[in-house]
Design a protein around this nucleic acid. Structure first.
Length: 773
DNA sequence: TCTGGAAATTTTTTT
DNA sequence: AATTTCCAGA
């Protein structure tokens, strides 16, 4: 049997595509990652493509790691040479090698949103811009969009001629870019922008990567922005032996799941792909292996209200399943309490696991109430998103020390820690040093080193010089051979008394901060242990800069997951609670009041994403009354609820106050009223309730039934070896089988190889032979 | 230079 | 409601 037999017809077509541009329109749950990984395997095993010539791009580390893991399992040989990584890491890797061509130093640092804001604030002060009139975040978003569109500061300035405000923006953008460069720093957008610039200005560098990446694959293509599009298209324009331009570019995406417009994503990248790349082959994957028919029908109906989308419709062989539940509660507390109670009941009565559940919402702020109720019920949970670990004050402080040691040009980092802990170096002193640095065209840190020559510093000069010598001592220790990054971290904590100070506080909050610091030390240790080459401070800081919150989500953790709809993309859960379904919350107030109708369409796509996360049961809820930023709001049920056909919905009465919106019959369930009538308990929102709850397999583990359906293939033959047996692999040599588990259609075998370490692989592809002696 | 309390501000989503 | 910024006083 072949590994491709388990794929459906369309999936096979995509996998077996040879050369030229390929657009795979993959609906939610249609097995796109399977297609991507199998296509990589096919290229290598059947078309003899060198693994070294393959580049696979994703948006999150999580997606990249998953793809890497799955590719490792099915590709026979050389899978470690395939370049699987995120856009941002890929660009960093390229820039670390060649950024000197652009006049930056190779040890550049990466600025996060916080650093950007600090920098913008400094610039506003410098250019005497009143931040009451022009907000920092406006400036940041203007600059970010410009970079996403590959518009340089000079070009922006040219286009801003007649417009006073735009000219201001232009001056800030110009200064911002100038300072980033003198700080030897790049922001997130720069990573892409500068790589494109590098390729455009240095044909020999471009040529190298074009020859290397002969086959390029892009996941979540609908989320790419203009800069990323340019990056991909330049890279993918290679010449074949006959000297013709060839685009061996395979993109996978779903225009209906494009939800990152605010981040610069350009939906026309996917909508116009066929025009951009003539001779594109288009393959649609419409069979869904994830959800019940009811869930898919609801999703299809909702998304059909959008115009200007590629026509497609998901279908499934799965059962009809439960109806979609909707409950309107009196307020957000009741909503949270009942959702949590429902989860608790299903865990106790139906044998569901914690990680079968996801609570999804539009904004991070909605998570808190759920968190409180989960704690009350003693249910383990994890909140994805919100304040990232690396954004915590204590973590940022310590990282700023590391950055200062690593790249003395990073003024933002130096200024952050110069008075942490308190050294009696205040704003006045910092301003004087900054002015000196500016006048002499040196970095802030270099100015500190010359503190004795700076006028009017007074007693501060001595304080500064002791700070400088602290940093210099740490630097010199780091350059000695036996000194690890862990040692450096500990010495920083020791020298600054950071933890001691927190311990003295004796509060729970301080203890939490100490825990975070210990966690950071763990990350350093893990990094050093796993580093493939000599661990460096730069590389550690880079790894830290590019993590997303979703990356740390381990499927093995048996906890209830709480996150925003945005974070949920790409994931699936048996039971999904989609909360806060109210006009003004979801869709958001901003987009309802906007005169741009495409904004509601983007929210609708977000709704589509949310609905299609659910495998077995989807529960929707809304609150009549909700406190938002200290103000009580009375919201109507979301307009998206009206777009779900009533026969798919089952409305339950909220536990305390069984009240229903007024005109609840005749037209397609209209939730128009903000006043309520006193209908009886038994009435529903709709004029008929034809729904019968099917006797579905609620009690069984959903993961056990789904994958079997997905791969309708007979089980693999019994294995010729068992746990403890000695086996041999054509590449990894001999080893001992340490574990065998039944996964889907195949056995997953864990082998502890004598020379290659522990590997997990699928029995069918591993072709292990039992050692007879 | 540092502190605490009052006042202002939050506008979705995030690699 | 919660967080950040502002400002007077020590």
């Amino acid at each position: 049997m072949s590994i491709y037999d388990s794929l459906n017809k369309e999936q096979q077509k995509a996998v077996k595509h040879d050369k030229g541009p390929l657009l795979i329109l993959a609906g939610a749950g249609s097995g796109k990652t399977r297609v991507l990984t199998h296509r990589i395997a096919y290229l290598i095993d059947e078309l003899n493509v060198n693994p070294w010539n393959i580049l696979a791009l994703t948006f999150t580390n999580k997606a990249a790691n998953e793809m890497r893991e799955r590719v490792d399992k099915i590709v026979g040989y050389g899978s470690e040479n395939i370049w699987v990584s995120t856009f941002h890491s890929t660009c960093v890797r390229i820039l670390r090698r060649y950024i000197e061509c652009l006049g930056y130093d190779r040890s550049f640092t990466i600025y996060d949103a916080d650093d950007q804001k600090t920098l913008i604030r400094e610039i506003c002060k410098f250019l005497e811009i009143d931040t009451k009139n022009i907000k920092e975040r406006t400036l940041l978003s203007v600059i970010s969009s410009a970079k996403d569109e590959l518009i340089s500061p000079e070009e922006y300035e040219l286009n801003a001629q007649g417009d006073f405000v735009k000219r201001k923006y232009a001056s800030v953008y110009k200064e911002y870019q100038k300072r980033l460069k003198s700080n030897n720093a790049l922001d997130f957008d720069d990573l892409i922008y500068k790589t494109v610039e590098l390729f455009q200005n240095n044909p020999e560098v471009l040529d190298y990567y074009q020859k290397r990446f002969k086959y390029i694959m892009v996941d979540e293509y609908q989320d790419t922005n203009t800069a990323q599009f340019r990056l991909i298209s330049i890279l993918a324009s290679t010449r074949n032996e006959e000297g013709e331009i060839e685009h061996n570019l395979c993109v996978v995406g779903d225009d209906d799941q494009s939800i990152y417009k605010f981040r610069g994503a350009n939906i026309y990248n996917i909508l116009n792909f066929e025009q951009q790349f003539p001779d594109t082959k288009v393959i649609k994957l419409e069979q869904n292996y994830r959800s019940t028919q009811n869930i898919l029908n609801a999703a299809n109906e909702v998304i059909s209200n959008n115009v200007g989308r590629k026509d497609k419709s998901l279908w499934t062989e799965n059962e009809e399943g439960e109806p979609i539940h909707f409950t309107q509660y009196d307020n957000e507390y009741e909503e949270a309490e009942n959702v949590v109670r429902d989860i608790d009941r299903m865990i106790n009565d139906d044998g569901a696991d914690y990680n079968d559940f996801a609570i999804l919402y539009r904004t991070n702020a909605q998570s808190r109430i759920f968190e409180e109720k989960l704690i009350l019920k003693n249910i383990p949970y994890k909140i994805v998103g919100g304040v990232n670990f690396y954004q915590r004050k204590e973590v940022k402080d310590l990282l700023a020390y590391l950055k200062t040691i690593d790249n003395g040009l990073d003024d933002i980092a130096v200024k952050r820690i110069i008075n942490i802990p308190k050294r009696g170096i205040g704003l006045t002193t910092i301003d004087r040093v900054t002015a000196y640095a500016l006048n002499n065209d040196i970095s802030f840190y270099d100015a500190l080193r010359h503190a004795e020559y700076i006028p009017n510093l007074g007693r501060s000069a001595g304080k500064i010089s002791s700070f400088v010598s602290l940093i210099e001592v740490l630097k010199s220790h780091l350059s000695s051979p036996d000194y690890s990054l862990e040692d450096l971290m500990n010495e920083i904590i020791e020298a600054t008394g950071y933890v001691t100070e927190l311990e003295a506080e004796e509060t729970e909050e301080a203890q939490g901060r100490i825990d975070n610091i210990n966690e950071l030390i763990n990350k350093v240790v893990t990094y050093e242990k796993n580093a493939t080459e000599e661990p460096t401070l730069s590389e550690f800081l880079e790894e830290v800069a590019l993590v997303a919150d979703i990356d740390s989500l381990e499927e093995s953790n048996n906890v209830v997951i709480l996150m925003t709809l945005h974070s949920a993309k790409g994931l699936e859960f048996p039971y999904v609670y989609l909360c806060g379904m109210e006009d003004g919350i979801f869709p958001s107030y901003m987009c309802i009041t906007s005169d741009d109708p495409t904004e509601v369409e983007e929210e609708r796509r977000l709704c589509y994403v949310g609905i299609t996360r659910a495998m077995k049961k989807l529960s929707l809820s809304a609150a009549r009354q909700r406190m938002v930023r200290g103000e009580t709001q009375f919201n109507k049920p979301s307009r998206f609820l009206r777009e779900i056909p009533r026969y798919l919905l089952k409305q339950s009465a909220s536990s305390l106050a069984p009240r229903f919106p007024k005109n609840s019959s005749m037209e397609r369930n209209s939730f128009s009223g903000s006043s309520y009538s006193n209908k009886t308990m038994n009435s529903t929102l709709f004029d008929k309730t034809p729904y019968q709850v099917p006797k579905s397999s609620l009690h069984s583990n959903p993961y056990a039934t789904m994958p079997k359906k997905q791969f309708a293939v007979t089980n693999a033959e019994p294995l010729a070896y068992g746990i403890g047996d000695r086996v041999s692999h054509f590449k990894f040599g001999t080893g001992t089988v340490s574990d065998i588990t039944q996964g889907g259609k195949d056995y997953e075998v864990t082998v502890d190889f004598d020379n290659a370490g522990v590997k997990k692989m699928l029995a069918t592809f591993a072709k292990l032979k039992k050692e007879t002696n």
